[in-house]
């Protein structure tokens, strides 16, 4: 049993390593691209400045254009114009453009903190949007690298699936051991041991979302503790009991994965409650900013 579990765990890890290797190389390319494009942007601004133009109009409009692009993704998602596959691609592009906009923003703010209240409001808005975006990106990356979330499971379906698992668990635990009938020996209390295990360790686990904080940091320690409990009992039960424990083990692993998914899907939704509203606020400020800038342009365009 232990060997099986370890093998399974190793296999899972091996698959994860290979996919993470692919992910790392992809991320490296993305990072190089972002750095290269940002460098190109800075150079463009530099030669624009040299050509006796105000660079704030160039990087400002690049920033505004990029923000419009990001906004389009939001609108398209909301209006359902994009297929799920397109949404995935757009999301990747959304993150990529987000990094470039950070470069454009740094250039536009001339790598300096703002000097006025209105500019501080703009700066704060952009920084909040950026930070929330980065957090969301981290979550997406975190889910992907942990490899424990089945993308096919929607966030809304998780509680239902958890309830099903709990039912399954109860059914497994309640199933009588047929061996005493075959061999007329005093019955061994295998079922009672398993019921104890369920009662003491698993019943509460299956009743709802558990180990939130551990899942937040992607810790598998609670799962390992449960698995250890099951593994400790396994040598003392008969083959049927071991079969039960094996099924229990699978259910526990699946429930833990669902809890992890639920935590992360929840966060994924929660950060958007910062990202999107602040974006709206930033949009309002940006429009005002453009109006003010062109009102006071002084022929510097």
């Amino acid at each position: 049993m232990k060997l099986l579990a370890r093998r399974a765990a190793n296999g899972s890890m091996g698959a994860g390593t290979s996919s993470s290797m692919r992910g790392v190389s992809g991320q490296t390319i993305t990072a190089i691209l972002i750095v290269a494009i940002s460098g190109g942007l800075f150079w463009l601004v530099q030669i624009y400045t040299s050509a006796l133009r105000d660079p704030r109009y160039l990087d400002g409009w690049l920033l505004a254009g990029g923000m419009s692009l990001q906004l389009f993704f939001h609108v398209a998602t909301k209006t359902g114009r994009l297929s799920p596959k397109s949404i995935m691609r757009w999301r990747t592009f959304h993150i990529f453009v987000g990094y470039l906009l950070v470069a454009a923003f740094l250039s536009h703010s001339n790598f300096a903190l703002p000097n006025s209240a209105f500019d501080w409001a703009l700066w704060t808005g952009f920084v909040l949007v950026t930070l929330s975006g980065l957090f969301g990106t981290y979550l997406a990356w975190s889910l992907k690298t942990k490899g424990r979330v089945d993308d096919r499971i929607g966030y809304d379906r998780i509680p239902l699936r958890v309830a099903e698992l709990a039912q399954d668990m109860k059914a497994i635990v309640a199933m009588p051991d047929p061996s005493p009938d075959a061999i007329a020996l005093p019955p061994a209390p295998y079922d009672a041991w398993i019921i104890d295990l369920y009662t003491n360790h698993l019943q509460d686990f299956f009743e709802g979302l558990r180990n939130f904080s551990s899942h937040l940091v992607a810790s598998q320690r609670p799962l390992k503790r449960l698995i250890d409990e099951i593994n400790h009992l396994a040598p003392y039960v008969d083959a049927q009991g071991q079969e039960k424990l094996s099924r229990i083990w699978n259910l526990v692993a699946e429930k833990d994965a669902l809890d992890f998914a639920r935590v992360h899907f929840g966060l994924t939704r929660a950060w958007l409650f910062v990202h999107v509203p602040v974006t709206y606020g930033l949009l309002v400020l940006s429009v005002l900013h453009v109006l003010v800038v062109y009102s006071y342009a002084s022929g510097a365009m």
Binding site: K78, F118, A121, G125, L272, F273, V276, P277, V278, T279, Y280, G281, L283, V284, L285, L288
Partner: peptide
């Protein structure tokens, strides 16, 4: 979320 976003936009404009 959208309602909150709209609220934030309105508050931003009003406070500005």
């Amino acid at each position: 979320r959208d309602r909150l976003a709209l609220l934030v936009a309105l508050v931003t404009a009003a406070s500005t």
